[in-house]
Amino acid sequence: MKKEITIGIAEDHPLLRVGLVSALKPHKNIKILFDVSNGKELLENLKVIRPEIILLDIEMPIMRAQDVMQRINAKYPKIKIVIITAFFQKDYIIECFKLGAKAFLPKGDEVEKVLEVINIVHEKGIYIDTEISKVLTEELQNSNKKPSNLRLTKKELEVLNLICQGTKRKETAESLGVTLDTINYHMSNIMRKTNTDNVQSLIKYAIENKLINNA
């Protein structure tokens, strides 16, 4: 006999919520602890009763899904969130996973599919189908494509030299006769081109690559 799985449902469409509840109710290993229509109600319910899995519609009124997921992860890290959505846009999927989602469930999926996802998330902690894994792989490959060997312009080398000499950005701006915004812009672009994220690592990069005094 399968182990009982407790779930909570947060879906703002009454029709879909009722449909989901009535489709899952007959299955003996699923126990629905509550069904609510918005994020605020969901968090209120979690104060007293905690399911193992939450089926969360991401497009709900009153509270943004991002805030709801952040709070659930911070307060109840053991609860697994399955996103119910009809929208499979790359950035949207990635952000949801970053916020702690364990699976995506297309709206209007057959009850068998819903049960399969719930069971896999309960057993293995996560469910990623082919479509989602394609999106995640693509993102991972893109994030590795960082710029390399991008040449710095003459102006950028001038800015880099002054910064490496310890000149403050405001003074650099005055010395080059440009605005502070322009210097900030050049600094961001230099850091992007050199794959650095702070002045110390930039100076190290400049020394290693003999960029100082080359302007």
């Binding site: 469409h13 029709l15 879909l16 449909g19 489709a23 009809a86 709206k107 209007g108 999926d109 057959e110």
Partner: peptide
Amino acid sequence: PIVALATSNLN
């Protein structure tokens, strides 16, 4: 919701 529920029921 109407379209989604109809789709789900039909499936």
